[in-house]
Nucleic acid binder design. Sequence first.
DNA 1: TGCGACCCATTAAGAGAGCTTATGCATAAT
DNA 2: ATTATGCATAAGCTCTCTTAATGGGTCGCA
Lengths: 299, 299
Amino acid sequence: MALQLPPLTAIRVFEAAARHASFTKAAEELGMTQAAVSYQIKLLEERVGTPLFLRRPRQVVLTETGRRMAPSVSEAFALLSEAYASARSGSAGTLCISTVLTFASNWLARHIGSFQMRHPGIAVRLDTSSHLVDFSREEVDVGIRSGDGKWPGLAAHLLFRAQYTPMLSPKLADSIGGVKEPADLLKLNILDPGDFWWTRWFALANVPPESLEGRPDTSMGSQAYEAAAAIAGQGVAILTRAFFTNEIAEGRLIQPFDLFGDDGQGYWLVYPESRRNAPNIRAFREWILAEMEQTSAGG
Amino acid sequence: MALQLPPLTAIRVFEAAARHASFTKAAEELGMTQAAVSYQIKLLEERVGTPLFLRRPRQVVLTETGRRMAPSVSEAFALLSEAYASARSGSAGTLCISTVLTFASNWLARHIGSFQMRHPGIAVRLDTSSHLVDFSREEVDVGIRSGDGKWPGLAAHLLFRAQYTPMLSPKLADSIGGVKEPADLLKLNILDPGDFWWTRWFALANVPPESLEGRPDTSMGSQAYEAAAAIAGQGVAILTRAFFTNEIAEGRLIQPFDLFGDDGQGYWLVYPESRRNAPNIRAFREWILAEMEQTSAGG
DNA sequence: TGCGACCCATTAAGAGAGCTTATGCATAAT
DNA sequence: ATTATGCATAAGCTCTCTTAATGGGTCGCA
């Protein structure tokens, strides 16, 4: 196929020169010197095989060929720059967030509405697939994942550390006359006792580790489910605090101890470094960091 | 104004890559390496601010933004290459000849039909203005002018030398019993005796120069008119032979002597060197040189 | 599974297109 | 005449773009 295309820079210069009927004016518009315009036009004329301008004393005028060529060229460039501009700005119109399920259900679901209020022009799409998103393979703008914040090529902002601590319903606490010290928890049903977080937390609390052994594993695989069970009074769950500030504030859960486990991980906002300034990404970043600030302050 | 246009080379590459859904294929089409395509696409993606392709294992696929952009871009390029192609070939569609009146009326008028028969696709426009055409100021393809063949920047082909010699109608010659020697001409009416050509020619013929003095100046300013007068038997004209081979062949004029004046000038086909290979110019050049060959051989 | 084929990304180095500066020339305006 | 304007041209340089070589990832085949 290979349609022989004209030298594009020359064509662009021609378009401007034809519009202005002046090399000097075209040079101004294009931000180059008059000499460069002259050079490009000459080049194009050689390629076309016929003059495009007549050099008159203090002006240039299009030849027949030039006149025939100019309108199509202008139209083509209009099309091009429109497509380009719309791609540039249009890229702000959608935001695809790939997030771990935990974060989506425990935090994002309750807060994303605020983002959409502030940026009504941005359509949000959530992708809660569990695999680690590869930005070069999938059409995703930002990701939220847990880890240590070190991913090559990705910018990462810490949202909060994954600090875990036991939580239970006030009613359940009351059923044993209140939870005064960590060992009290052992009187209750432990949700997902196999979770390493329990082991670590009891260690921090100076409770012998063997106390968990032999308990039936009730792992539900998701904090959301364990939280629901805890709220229903079915046991004590060990949860990430930041996800449940709301439940605590509303009294549906209580956090008996100000003691946190911390495995050094955290939840991070990530996106390709190179896209740091994309409008939609910038908007989301600024919003979520502000939101975190506010939440942690309020909680 | 100054719509920010995208980097055009990158856009061209994008267009091809989008069409093929492959960088490698696009590279082949554009005659460059795959690496260059990759580079240009990356460049464009940075400018646009969002990926245009998703890099999948053995293929690339357009992102939403890319899909939105591709059709307009393709259309724009189609427009562009059409305009360019039509300018390229369309430039062969017209041939504007600037020629001195003498040549137009005495030679071209009778022969141009043969050119149009051979190149029916080329519309011929004649411009017989008398001033020396400036190819950079006027929309003229080729010129025919007399001179010494030296014009800077112009290619020049000698059509014929301006050799002049007396001519008259056979009937007029008979009226004085035939023209046997140059001096016999003095018995007849000399058309435009003030023309320097007469002086030169009689000098070549060893006829005293004073013989022309005192004759009324009948200058008509154009060989065509003088030739018409000669054919009508009104006198002897001194004419450029090449223009009247036809009249001689048909017996309407006779050339009594094989003696030619020659002021070193000639008629030349000229055009800008740079346009030597323009299709219309090439066609005309080849035709007129062949025609000259044939005429001088036949005459 | 392991190997080869295919496709894209990346890097460094080199070539060359195209820009700028400076100057010249022609014409129109003053 | 003199000045101002607009384009052409030459030389030199910059920086974009290309090439070449290499690496990584996946699919297909045995």
